[in-house]
């Protein structure tokens, strides 16, 4: 069972209180972008075995979106953080590196 701390209301939320929103930090391409960019925005996902950034919504709770950094392999949760950020903040990167010294964000 996955448990994530909602940074909006502070609850340690059981997975069944949450709704998954897929990969986080996607750059949105809309009207006027190239077909390749639009296709990538719609369909291409990193889908890593390892560190992953995800969107979650505390659907049966405060209702807010937030982001989570976790490992798809071990199910460790490194951090949850505000959805109002275009890239992982430094404290989240530090929390990941503390457990995955070899990890880099480009990987």
């Amino acid at each position: 069972m996955l448990i994530l701390e909602c940074p909006c209301c502070g609850v340690m939320a059981d997975e069944t209180e949450l709704a998954p929103g897929g990969e986080a930090h996607l750059k949105r391409y809309g009207p006027g972008s190239s077909d390749e960019d639009f296709e990538g925005y719609l369909f291409h996902r990193a889908n890593p075995k390892g560190v992953h950034f995800e969107r979650w919504r505390h659907a049966n709770g405060c209702g807010k979106w937030f982001l989570a950094a976790r490992c798809t392999n071990t199910l460790e949760v490194f951090a949850t953080y505000s959805a109002q950020t275009p890239e992982p903040p430094q404290h989240v990167i530090d929390a990941i590196r503390a457990k995955r010294p070899d990890w880099s964000i480009e990987a």
């Binding site: 209301c9 609850v11 069944t16 209180e17 659907a59 049966n60 709770g61 405060c62 209702g63």
Partner: peptide, 10 residues
């Protein structure tokens, strides 16, 4: 005040 899920509903 705790908002949550009761069985299948909020």
């Amino acid at each position: 005040m705790r908002r949550t899920r009761m069985a299948q509903v909020p």
